[in-house]
Amino acid sequence: MASTLTGPFALVLREQRERFNTKFAQARRERPRLDPEAVLEGLRTSLAPAVEAVSAAAPEQTAPAADVLYDVLLDLVGQDLLGPAARYPVLNQGWAQLLPRLGRFLAAAPRAVAGSLTNALYNLSATPGARPEQWLSLMAAAGDACPDVETLLAAGPVAAWRAGLAHLRAGALKTAQTLPPAVARAALGLPDGSEPLETVLAGLAADPWWEPSSAGPLPAAARRIGVAARVGAFRGFGGLFLRPPIVAAAGEHFLVSDGEDSWLLVADVWGATFHRAAGLPTSRPPSPFSLSKDGTVKADGQAVRLPELAEITSHAANANTLAVTTALSHAVVLVALR
């Protein structure tokens, strides 16, 4: 197995050859389609860089970490999540590019770090509209500033929120306040020298549609009504809905139904996610928005006609967002003051 590899990992493979071969045989019994070539490829491109990084950070941890990471690799290759047949190629990227930058963390807790980061990448990849590649680069930057594994893993959800998992917003905002500022800034992708972290977090907490890269939160009078996002699509095109959906308010989020199923829609400036929901009560929270039949949206003394809101089938609003569905589209149009 180790013929094409050199370095500390190759040494581990040579010393543990029987053990690793037995593990492979056992894994293959569990997953008969486990391809030895794919495992070899995974060893070369995914596992070797990670183990080399461990070896560089803590040489005495090389063998134990390799043993643990090999188990994880077998499990992932067996599920077609790593290796040449990976369903989400970004997982290969994570192992080849992110893990080698996290050698000291892998040495301390190989399964927790590799497993958790892989799971996070998987969840990002499986969420339509999320940006796993962005999460990789945010985490690589955050990793450089992290003092320990605990902080690294705490930074993950903050970076995931920034990379499109809008439903993590509340938890991530809370976590960001507890992280070292340099880590939080890196996880949120804030450029050096931009506004203080407290200001940014306060702005994000106050308005889900505020983009921190702009020059501070806008005063209320300067915000303009506009389409903030179009989310959801026809199932035939990879979306969720069988029919053009209708929408209702559900607290600070929205409930969307296509007549067959219902989802909770969570959206903000960085993304929108849908979550299956049943039995969730609808509500009518206070809102500044009102909508006319011709697609005119009124809020804060402004009135804007949005032509794409023709043939409205449903609309709902909360304090920050107006959600509208039309007979002509499977998307939910989100209107906000920005």
Binding site: V72, D75, L76, Q79, L81, R111, A112, A114, G115, S116, T118, N119, A120, Y122, N123, L153, G156, P157, A160, L165, H167, L168, A170, G171, A172, T175, L264, V266, H275, R276, A277, A278, G279, L280
Partner: peptide, 26 residues
């Protein structure tokens, strides 16, 4: 079972996935 009532989101769910027991007890 049919979908259970929504109970809010937990950031820990980010680390639940195909690698089982990545963080035991977390």
């Amino acid at each position: 079972h049919p979908a259970t009532p929504f109970k809010g989101f937990d950031v820990a769910a980010l680390y639940q996935g195909p690698v089982a027991d990545a963080q035991p007890g977390a």
